[in-house]
Amino acid sequence: MKDLDSNNSDSNKPDSNKQSSDSAMGISDEQLMLNYQQGDTAAFEQLYSKHKGPLYRYFVRQLSQKSLAEDLYQDTWGKVINAAGNYQVTAKFTTWLYRIAHNLLIDHVRAVKPLDEAADMGDETMDNFDASINNEHAHGRPDEQLEDEQKAKLLKSCVASLPAVQKEAFLLNIELGLTAAAISDIADVTLEATKSRIRYAYQSIKQCVAAKWQGVTHD
């Protein structure tokens, strides 16, 4: 587990890329937020362009309804904008941003419909994905690139089939490269539980992808 944190930070390419870009520009996310607080809208645009993709996928891949995901995505940025006047650097901006997103997700979705039920919908998408894979395989394109693309689609369906808590931990880790400690702050769970969720998520995805790929090749 000790290695998990260090490995996560070391092996996470998006996070390293982000840090390199920050250092290259010389402006951290917190400083961009402070600049926006002083009226620099360009700083907010820069901040938005940096975080819009991962945050959007954070919602889209946890929710079956895309419209609901987009609504929550806009609500998250709306809260960031409204809270900019009173923003103080007490934590990393990423942690603060995804804590807002996590709370919105809890309030609007989990309170009404547990996300575990979404796993069933993931199965449905899995069925559709399997059908598409079978169709493509039937058309006969057996190169490696096609195999990777097919595995990527299998991975997407496998991620969708994860339990909600594991899915959230997996997305935060693989999208943003957040450590188990940061994820535990966002999800408001213990560090050990977060580490376990991450490990289980990766292993489950591997097994899922392998199983689905084996089934595809058999067909």
């Binding site: 390419k13 819009k52 993709g53 959007y56 996928r57 595995k151």
Partner: peptide, 13 residues
């Protein structure tokens, strides 16, 4: 898993 994840199409708003 990360390599496979990045090969898939990444949704954007």
């Amino acid at each position: 898993i990360s390599a496979l994840y990045k090969q898939q199409a990444l949704e954007r708003p």
